[in-house]
Design a binder for these strands. Structure first.
Lengths: 231, 231
DNA sequence: CGCATTATTGAAGGAGTTCAACCTTGGTGG
DNA sequence: CCACCAAGGTTGAACTCCTTCAATAATGCG
């Protein structure tokens, strides 16, 4: 399938790639629409492809033996995901589910080493992408080790409003459906605690929420909470 | 400084590199001994170099504004560390401290992109290294979200016994000094709780500990705890 | 309209932290 | 060589934040 180069060209991942290389890359790509709620791949499946999210929003989740689930990451447009082979794993370590209708590109796993080795710039980009993810993971570990739940939730909501926020007249709307359960799984707590926290924030005018909806009305107030200032 | 190729050649990171490329790489390296307790670099310093640990053991820590410290990772021999530039950061996000007398190689940060782009195989290796780290970070996040402290500590100790264990007649000794505080900072708890847990384990014959010492006497018993089986 | 999914909120309970006091160890210098 | 002392470790008791349990309410899709 022929994919329009201009859409992809604007992504940071490919900003330094040559047009010729990009075309070769895209010639091998498959294009797929994923309706909200559907899965791109499941935890434990053989990693036959790696992916790039063009539009929409994905949740990558992991589930433990005893049924506990966490959200490993939210995939935003322009990001690579499902590159299990880079971890030298035969299978996907998590499940990728579309939170909204999404569009993904995919390539056969076998092509990953070839692309990385043939195109140093792509490799450098991929390393940067992973570096950013690693940094984020460490942030999360640090937060979970040292901060109480309310601060962690404040951080998570602020992050989402930055990476997936759409400006509205009364604040910043998080532009994809996200439940209390989701937020709990991102911050290592329970949906009950998240619900209580959001209710309290709503009373203080920091946010306005509905079912699977969050609107940040006072980012500065939230920031103060995230910094640990209780005032 | 001329560095012996054979020592480095055996590392997984360089297993697929050509001798010529490896020599070029090593020609630019600096060699440095780091006595126990000394720091290789500090959090916030400009990232002038990236590093490879040849021998010894390092702790990479981060400290938050309010003085809370966590251990981001333990660096074992053969691993890259301090590659902040890969994260597009000008400074080191953490502090690297020698837990035992260590030997490190270092290269100027400017060489990183050149090495990565000129040598696709090295890039692939670096990506794999980071991938493994990312996976580990996610494991840690999942554990901290879903498991109680005792299981997390059990996991941490088992990991250490695998990656830094030396066999003795009565069990597996963790081959570098590690304090209760260190273990607490690795698992997101307090030194008090770690102390209580280790005392309980010692009474049950799972471990034997001393000041900055841990000896695993019953890996299977610990594994059972780590899997969540309380029996 | 009906029902499943999502969210709210109260009450009880517990795992782990915090505070505090004390003990041990091993390195150092007198 | 031993005495000292700082760093590391132990352990009790109180407390608290968060989870767990439980029951009820709102939302929106088919």
């Amino acid at each position: 399938m022929k994919i329009d180069r201009t859409v992809v060209k604007s992504l940071p991942l490919f900003e330094r790639i040559s047009d010729a290389d990009l075309d070769t890359f895209l010639d091998h790509a498959s294009y797929r629409r994923v309706p909200a709620g559907e899965q791109v791949f499941k935890q434990g499946q053989t990693a036959t492809s790696f992916y790039l999210l063009l539009s929409g929003r994905l949740k990558v989740t992991q589930i433990t033996g005893d049924g506990q689930q966490i959200i490993v990451r939210i995939v935003h447009p322009g990001e690579l995901f499902g590159f299990a082979m880079a971890l030298q794993r035969p299978d996907y370590p998590g499940t990728a589910t579309a939170a909204t209708d999404s569009i993904v590109l995919s390539w056969p796993s076998e092509l990953w080493p070839r692309f990385v080795e043939q195109n140093g710039r792509l490799a450098a980009s991929a390393i940067q992408t992973m570096g950013r993810q690693l940094e984020e993971a460490h942030n999360r570990i640090r937060e979970m080790s040292t901060q109480e739940v309310e601060r962690r939730v404040a951080h998570a909501i602020l992050r989402l409003s930055l990476l997936a926020g759409r400006k509205e007249e009364s604040g910043i709307r998080i532009a994809f459906p996200i439940s209390r359960q989701d937020i709990a799984e991102m911050t290592g707590t329970t949906l009950h605690t998240v619900s209580r926290i959001l209710s309290a924030w709503e009373a203080r005018g920091f946010v306005a929420c509905g079912r699977q909806k969050v609107l940040v009305r006072d980012p500065c107030g939230l920031s103060r909470l995230a910094e640990g200032r209780h005032d």
